[in-house]
Write a protein that binds this DNA or RNA. Structure first.
Lengths: 339, 339
DNA sequence: CTGAAAGCGCTTACAG
DNA sequence: CTGAAAGCGCTTACAG
C-alpha cells in the first residue's frame, strides 16, 4: 500500500493513467468530475509519484549537489546556506555531501553526481583532489569547482583572489607596525593549493616592503581546525626567540584556536599578539576578542556558482570554461584593533 | 556523447546489453576476451551507468536523507558528521537537506524523500512541524524523527531526555549556590516542544529544592542563535533588579552570545554570572571561558537513528514505532567552574 | 478532454 | 557464458 502506482490510481478511478498523470501534475484541462474521482483515488491509496521514474523520463531531477570537505567547518555550512538560497531562486533543491576530504569519495561523488543523472549538476569544493586530478576529466559534466584554477582545467571555477586577500591581511598587520608576523596554515603539498596561494600573498606583502620573511614563522598545519591553530600557536610560543607579535591564520578556526592558546598563556590580544583570520564565520564575530578577518563574499560565490551551473543545464551552446572571481574585504575587529 | 547508454556500449562491443551490464556490475563470469572488448567500449564512449534507471529497476537508491533546520548551527553539522559516518557502515550515502524551519519545505522533503523513492529513508529533525503534524501521517514511510515523542506518533523517535538534562544543568547551578538563575531559550508555542521540555527540567530542579521560579527570569528567544543569546542577556542585565547570578541557555550558541554580552559589559564569568549551555559544540571548548554544557551523545543518536532506519528497510516484519533514548552528560568547564 | 502505446536506461529471470 | 525480452513507474507525442 505504501507503493500505489499511477496504474492503481487509474484503475480505481476508472480512467487512463494519462488522466491521472494530468491531474497529479496539474496539466491540461480535466473535467471537474474526473478530477474529483482521481483525487479521491489518490487520497485513498495514499499515492505519491515515484520521483525516480518521473526524473528518468523527464531527464532531469531538479537536484543540485554541493560537495564539500567538512560540513562542521563553519565556512562550508555558511556557504551551503548561501548556495541553497541561490539555487532555490532557480527552482533547484540542493543536496549536500561531505567527503571528509577523502579522494575516493570526492571522485565517487563527481562521477555519480555529475554524470550519472542523479543530480542535474554539482558544485564541488575539492580538498584532496588536486587541480591536476580534475584537469584530467573531460569537462562535459555540469560541474563547477570552488577554488582558483591552478592547473589548466576544463571546468568553471569560482573563487576569491587568495593571493590578494592574504596580501591585504598581511599588509594590515605590517601597517600596525608588527615585525614578526607568523603565517599559520600552510600546506606545502599537492592538494594544498589554496593555502599555498595565501602563503604567496603573505610573502608578496613582505617583499613589497623589502622585508625578508623568517621562514620559521611560516607554519604548516595538517588541517584547518581549532585544534590545529591551538597547537601551532603553542609551538610558536615555545620558540626560544620568543613569540611573534602577530599571526595571520589561513582560516578563522585556526585563529580561534590560536587565540585560545594565547589567552590561556596570559598574552594580550592585540597588544602582545595581533591575530587575523580568514573566512568571516559567525563565531569570530562573537568571540572575545572579536576576530579581524578576510571576509569572502559567500553570497557572491554562491550566486556565481549556481548561475554557472544552471547556465550549463539548458540546451544552449556550451560556453568555454571560465574563472569567476567573487569579492572579498578585510573586516577589522578587536583582535587587531583593540576594543 | 556525455550520454552513452548501455545499448551504445553493447553495439560498439558487439555483445548484448546483458553482457555489458554483467561486466559493469561485476556479475557472473564473462570471458576475458569479451570483458576486454566491453571495457574498451566503455572507456571509449565514456559510459557511466544512469543511476536513476538502475535505482528504479532495483527499487533502492542507497541514499539516506538527513533533514535538519539549519546546517550552520553547529549542533546539526556535528550531528550530520555522525550520521554520515554511521550510515556508511551500512553502505548508505547520506545526503543533507536544510529546511530553515520552513514548514512547507519540511513537508515537501518528507514527502519526496520518504515515499517518493528518491531516498531509501529519511532522518528528520523537525523544527516547524509540530509533533502533532507528524502524528497525522500514516507512518508507513521509512522515517525516523529526532526529538522526543510528545504527541502520539506513528514514527520512531530518537532523543535525549531533555527534562532530565535541563534538570541536571539547573541543579549544577543551584549546587554552586546561585539563587537567581535565568533560563534563556524558552519557546512557548506549538513547535517549541523541545524548549518547553528544558523549561520543565529547569522548573523541576527548583521545585525539588522548594525554590520558587522567578517567572521573569524565564526568557523566550525567537531562535537559538548567538545573536538571540546576546540580546536576551543584554535585556537581563538591564533589569532594574540587577543581573541574575547564573544563566542556563538552551543551546551553546545562545550561551556564547550571552557570554559575549557579559564580557562586553565587564562582568566576570563565572564569578558574577555562571553560564551553562547545551549541545557541547566545538566552539564552546575553545571559547574563553570554556563553556560548561550538556553533552548529548551525538554518536549514539546517529547510531540509533541509522539502525532504526536500516532496520525498516529490509523485508522483515515491521516493528511498532519506538522511542529510543541516547545518553547525555554534564560537561563542567570554566564558565561555571572558574579556570 | 481522454486513451493506447512508446520509451526513459537500466536489471534480471528465462532460455539456450 | 550470452541473448532476447519483460518490466521498474513514470511522461508525452499521437490520435480521436
Amino acid at each position: 500500500m505504501a507503493t500505489a502506482r499511477l496504474r492503481d490510481v487509474a484503475e480505481r478511478a476508472g480512467v487512463s493513467i494519462r488522466t491521472v498523470s494530468n491531474v497529479v501534475n496539474g496539466y491540461a484541462q480535466v473535467s471537474e468530475e474526473t478530477r474529483r474521482r482521481v483525487e479521491k483515488a489518490v487520497a485513498e491509496l495514499g499515492y505519491r509519484p515515484n520521483l525516480l521514474a518521473r526524473n528518468l523520463k523527464r531527464g532531469r531531477t531538479g537536484l543540485l549537489a554541493l560537495v564539500v570537505p567538512e560540513l562542521d567547518v563553519p565556512y562550508f555550512s555558511e556557504l551551503a546556506r548561501a548556495v541553497i538560497a541561490e539555487a532555490r531562486t532557480y527552482g533547484y533543491t540542493v543536496v549536500i555531501d561531505q567527503t571528509d576530504g577523502e579522494p575516493d569519495r570526492e571522485r565517487e561523488l563527481i562521477m555519480r553526481g555529475a554524470s550519472a543523472a542523479l543530480f542535474d549538476g554539482v558544485i564541488l569544493s575539492p580538498l584532496s583532489l588536486s587541480q591536476a586530478d580534475l584537469a584530467r576529466r573531460d569537462g562535459s559534466d555540469p560541474l563547477v569547482l570552488l577554488g582558483e584554477r591552478i592547473a589548466e582545467s576544463p571546468y568553471d571555477h569560482v573563487a576569491i583572489d587568495n593571493v590578494a586577500a592574504a596580501y591585504t591581511a598581511t599588509e594590515h598587520l605590517l601597517d600596525l607596525g608588527r615585525t614578526r608576523i607568523a603565517a599559520v596554515g600552510d600546506q606545502p603539498y599537492d592538494t594544498g593549493e589554496t593555502a599555498q596561494l595565501r602563503t604567496r600573498g603573505y610573502r608578496d606583502a613582505h617583499a613589497a616592503r623589502g622585508l625578508a620573511v623568517d621562514e620559521s614563522l611560516v607554519v604548516a598545519t595538517p588541517r584547518f581546525h581549532r585544534s590545529d591553530g591551538a597547537a601551532a600557536m603553542a609551538a610558536l610560543l615555545d620558540r626560544p626567540d620568543g613569540p611573534p607579535d602577530a599571526v595571520f591564520c589561513y582560516n578563522d578556526l585556526l585563529a580561534l584556536g590560536a587565540i585560545r592558546t594565547l589567552l590561556t598563556r596570559g598574552l594580550r590580544i592585540p597588544e602582545d599578539v595581533a591575530v587575523v583570520g580568514f573566512d568571516d564565520i559567525e563565531a569570530g564575530r562573537y568571540n572575545t576578542p572579536t576576530l579581524t578577518t578576510i571576509s569572502p563574499d559567500k553570497a557572491a560565490i554562491a550566486r556565481l556558482a549556481v548561475q554557472r551551473i544552471t547556465g550549463r543545464l539548458g540546451d544552449g551552446p556550451q560556453q568555454p570554461p571560465v574563472e569567476l572571481w567573487a569579492p572579498h574585504r578585510l573586516e577589522i575587529r578587536e583582535s587587531t584593533a583593540g576594543s
